[in-house]
Amino acid sequence: MDKLINVSPSPHVAGDYSVKKIMYGVVLALLPALAASIYYFGMGAIVVTLVAIASCVIFEYLIQKFIIKTKPTISDGSAILTGLLLAFNVPSNLPIWIIVIGALVSIGIGKMSFGGLGQNPFNPALVGRVFLLISFPVQMTSWPIPKGFNTGYADAVTGATPLALMKEGLGNNETVSNIMNSIPDHMQLFYGSMGGSMGEVCALALVLGFAYMLIRKIITWHIPVFLVGTVFAFTGILHLVNPEQFADPLFHILTGGVLLGAVFMATDMVTSPMTPKGMAVFAIGIGVITVLIRTFGAYPEGISFAILIMNACVPIINRYMKPKRFGEEVKNGK
């Protein structure tokens, strides 16, 4: 034979999967929530999103090209995703320069300093968000009031989030039912008509994104279901013990980014465990820490911190939560 043929070990076929497809799949799943934030926060949401995405992509390109000196891989979609998630986790009136700093921290410290895609132990967007929350507490907690589409950006009227109102009220020894009067009802919360980070408000849109990712098999149900379930159960018990001191579980789930965190932040593949068992432990951990921070800690929300704390536990979880090996039960059963 004078023809050249390829020789390589099996398998000789590969499925129709790629990193790009997964990343853009998640971006697609985020679109309903993006649409909702544009509806509620208008111009601000658009500006924040564009700035966050553009700066994440540019920082990734610059760092890869000039500092690490490798071929830039911005087309894999992961920087776009980080940018979008960062935008989702900040108020829609955040000054542009702060967003840029957040993107630099997310990409530079959260991702590239660990070696880039796949190597980072912490969710990059959350690293950026928490950095901003600590460095710029005022700007990061002035929440525009949603009021249909508005064209203003920095001049939006601001107010507190339902969770902050709750925390403040309880701090002043008011009762839950009393505070609830000044908070949108549950249905409004479900549609997202409340102050908050731009992507976290609309539960309906987030649930749609969850369904899409499940259908496309991008993520499994374990983390979101265990996480939300844990928050529900824990706050539910507290509520039953003293309904006037602890808000009801549905309120907790619909506010403060629990759904955004459960569906999009905690499920980040790179920073979550590899087995269903591990995912359950991880998600339950996040749920418990979130509720603890909310009810007994200083911050009204808590899910960002909870996710980052559990991110740090992932290597240990992976070490002990092994998949069920084939033939294992039989061996132990005998």
Binding site: I5, S8, V13, Y17, D76, L117, V270, S272, M274
Partner: peptide
């Protein structure tokens, strides 16, 4: 066009390999 492998990329820890392994390996 079916004969060569695609470019190797960094592991994104998606756990798909763990999910599909019929022997329950990682």
């Amino acid at each position: 066009d079916e004969a060569s492998r695609r470019l190797i990329q960094p592991c994104i820890r998606c756990a798909k390999c763990v999910t599909v392994c019929p022997m329950g390996l990682e």
